[in-house]
Simulated assay, not measured.
Amino acid sequence: MKLNLNKPLVVFDLETTGLDLVKDRIIQISFIKVMPNGEEERGDYLINPECHILPVITELTGISDDDVKDKPTFKQVAKTLSDKFVGCDFAGFNSNHFDIPLLAEEFLRAGIDFDFSKCRLIDACNIFKKLERRNLASAYKFYCGHRMEDDFEAHRADQDTEATYRVLMGQLDYYTEEKQRQLGEDPEGRVLTNDMDCLAAFSKTNNNVDFAGRIVWAEAKDSHGNTIYDKDGNPVLVECFNFGKYKGRTVVDVLQHDPGYYSWIMGGDFTYNTKQVLTRIRMREI
């Protein structure tokens, strides 16, 4: 099935030095940029993380210090990637939880304010877990009819990117009303719409404002603790802190009554993205 796109979609995957959004770095980024007319552009970069790659990561990915010692740093390729990605939506496997947040961190460390809040983020892993609850290898076998180890080399970003792209297209082919009826399934709740807004909404699994979940969306309350609704009857959502002594308090209220809390976060061991989101809220209110 051809993706129904009204702007480019970047299907991507990262290999990294670890899973810490603050401390770890990208060592490989691979992507397929799919255009609305169906044309595809592929990119694959090995990245020098400017730190030692642990043996366990080398064993997992096949990427060693020697493989990246002469490769560009992320900062050196950041502008090129930003130019390629601007105006695009993004898709990956477990990307909303890890790849997008880490990519956002790397852009900010490189001095590039890439605003992912303007992008629709489609996570084939979340779609799969909601409908079948497996991992990428199982998803590939289920939707593509092959064993992933027969078609790809495991734990390489370029290989996983290709597999994720095929899984996403396979999901759209599989979760149609016609296909579900052929399988004898009730299609209610098991049909995916070939539309990036719908896929992004279905991929979303949390109410985070920042990627790390330090700030979340919550229903606004009046002075009596009752939910406030807009003119269409939907709850009004406001940004609230999700940790520490102000957990559950709105960000705006805390910034007004304890301005020093902003400075404490800006100087603390928080992700650049969290600091960026907090600063945007602060500037908006000013």
Rank of each mutant, 00 (worst) to 15 (best):
N4I: 00
K7S: 09
P8V: 05
T17W: 14
L19P: 03
R25P: 07
I27K: 13
F31S: 15
V34G: 00
M35G: 01
D44W: 05
P49Y: 10
P55F: 11
G62Y: 02
I63S: 01
S64W: 13
D65S: 03
D65A: 02
V68L: 09
D70H: 13
K71A: 10
A78V: 13
A78M: 09
V86T: 12
C88P: 03
D89E: 09
F90M: 12
A91Q: 03
P101H: 06
L103K: 11
E106T: 12
F114L: 12
S117G: 10
S117W: 12
K118Y: 06
K118H: 05
D123N: 13
N126M: 02
N126I: 02
L136V: 09
A137P: 01
A137C: 05
C144L: 07
H146F: 15
H146D: 11
E149V: 09
E149Q: 12
F152T: 06
F152Y: 14
F152A: 07
A154W: 05
H155D: 12
T161H: 06
T161K: 06
Y165Q: 00
L168Y: 00
Q171V: 07
Y174T: 10
R181W: 07
Q182M: 14
L183R: 14
P187T: 13
G189S: 14
V191E: 08
N206G: 13
A212T: 12
R214D: 11
A220E: 07
K221W: 10
D222W: 03
D222G: 02
V236T: 08
L237T: 04
G244E: 15
G244N: 13
K245E: 10
R249V: 02
T250H: 03
V252N: 13
V252G: 08
I265C: 03
G267A: 02
F270T: 00
N273Y: 15
N273S: 12
Q276I: 01
R280P: 03
R280Y: 08
R282I: 00
I286D: 04
